[in-house]
Amino acid sequence: MIPLEPAGEADHLDIVALTNRAYRHTGPGAGWAVETFVEGERLTAELLRKDLVEKPKAQLLAWRSAEGELQGHVWLEPAQDELWYLGLLTVRPDRQDRKLGRTLLAAAEDFARQRGARRMQMVVVNVRDTLIAWYERRGYVLTGETRPFPYGDDRFGRPLRDDLCFVVLERAL
């Protein structure tokens, strides 16, 4: 299992840079999970700090190599009862296709399970069929619930389509 450590303030700029590279970079070296339906940054240091302050029970976990290089990160947050929310699962795009995403996901699930989680939930933008299928292969199921996309809130970038929403996926741990 990979080592996940709570991310500190010193990690925030690396996490922001990796998130934007993994979710929005479309040039050479782009990963398979790029969001081409939104332009602009996916995350800023200001937004990350604000989210951490507003959600004090959340855990932002970093995965670093033995040399200290950020390999990936994940956001975990107890939601209710034994349900936890998983978000911002990110692996370096140049290291994708090495089963590192599934390894990071399993480590995140173990982390939450050790703290009382019995179910994990996430939201994914509805047009991300490949990503939804990736999570389904790992045991997540679509719940049938959708949530509105934050049109008009450009903190996460500017949407290029008008048919976006979030679908909810869940998995028993």
Rank of each mutant, 00 (worst) to 15 (best):
Met1Tyr: 04
Pro3Lys: 15
Pro3Tyr: 11
Leu4Met: 10
Ala7Pro: 04
Ala7Tyr: 05
Gly8Ala: 08
Gly8Val: 03
Gly8Phe: 00
Ala10Tyr: 08
Ala10Thr: 12
His12Arg: 14
His12Ser: 09
Asp14Met: 03
Ala17Val: 01
Arg21Lys: 14
Gly27Ser: 07
Gly27Leu: 07
Gly29Ser: 03
Ala30Ile: 00
Gly31Asp: 02
Gly31Ala: 01
Trp32Leu: 13
Ala33Ile: 04
Glu35Leu: 14
Glu35Pro: 01
Glu35Trp: 10
Phe37Ile: 06
Val38Ser: 10
Glu39Met: 09
Gly40Trp: 11
Arg42Thr: 02
Arg42Val: 05
Thr44Pro: 01
Ala45Glu: 12
Ala45Ile: 01
Glu46Trp: 02
Arg49Pro: 00
Lys50Glu: 15
Lys50Val: 03
Leu52Cys: 11
Val53His: 13
Val53Ile: 15
Val53Leu: 15
Lys55Pro: 00
Pro56Thr: 12
Ala58Lys: 12
Ala58Arg: 09
Gln59Val: 02
Gln59Trp: 11
Gln59Cys: 13
Ala62Ser: 13
Trp63Ala: 15
Arg64Phe: 02
Ser65Gln: 08
Glu67Gln: 14
Gly68Asp: 07
Glu69Thr: 06
Gln71Gly: 11
Val74Phe: 07
Val74Ser: 10
Trp75Cys: 09
Leu76Ile: 01
Glu77Met: 13
Pro78Lys: 08
Pro78Asp: 07
Gln80Gly: 01
Asp81Trp: 06
Asp81Ile: 00
Glu82Arg: 13
Tyr85Thr: 08
Gly87Ser: 14
Gly87Tyr: 07
Leu88Ile: 00
Val91Glu: 01
Val91Lys: 01
Asp94Arg: 07
Asp94Ile: 03
Asp94Gln: 11
Asp97Trp: 07
Asp97Ile: 03
Arg98Thr: 05
Lys99Arg: 15
Leu100Asn: 08
Ala107Lys: 11
Asp110Leu: 04
Asp110Ile: 00
Asp110His: 07
Gln114Asp: 12
Arg115His: 09
Arg115Ala: 03
Arg115Tyr: 01
Arg115Asn: 04
Ala117His: 07
Arg118Ser: 10
Arg119Phe: 04
Arg119Thr: 11
Met122Gly: 07
Val123Ala: 14
Val124His: 11
Val125Pro: 05
Arg128Lys: 13
Leu131Val: 08
Ile132Arg: 14
Arg137Gln: 15
Arg138Asn: 13
Arg138Val: 00
Arg138Cys: 12
Gly139His: 09
Gly139Ile: 08
Gly139Tyr: 05
Gly139Asp: 05
Val141Leu: 13
Gly144Gln: 04
Gly144Trp: 02
Gly144Cys: 04
Thr146Leu: 10
Thr146Tyr: 05
Phe149Arg: 12
Tyr151Ile: 09
Asp153Ile: 02
Arg155Tyr: 01
Phe156Gly: 08
Gly157Glu: 10
Arg161His: 04
Arg161Thr: 03
Arg161Gly: 04
Asp162Gly: 10
Asp163Asn: 13
Asp163Arg: 13
Asp163Met: 09
Leu164Ala: 05
Val167Ala: 08
Val167Pro: 01
Glu170Lys: 14
Glu170Leu: 11
Leu173Ser: 05
Leu173Cys: 09
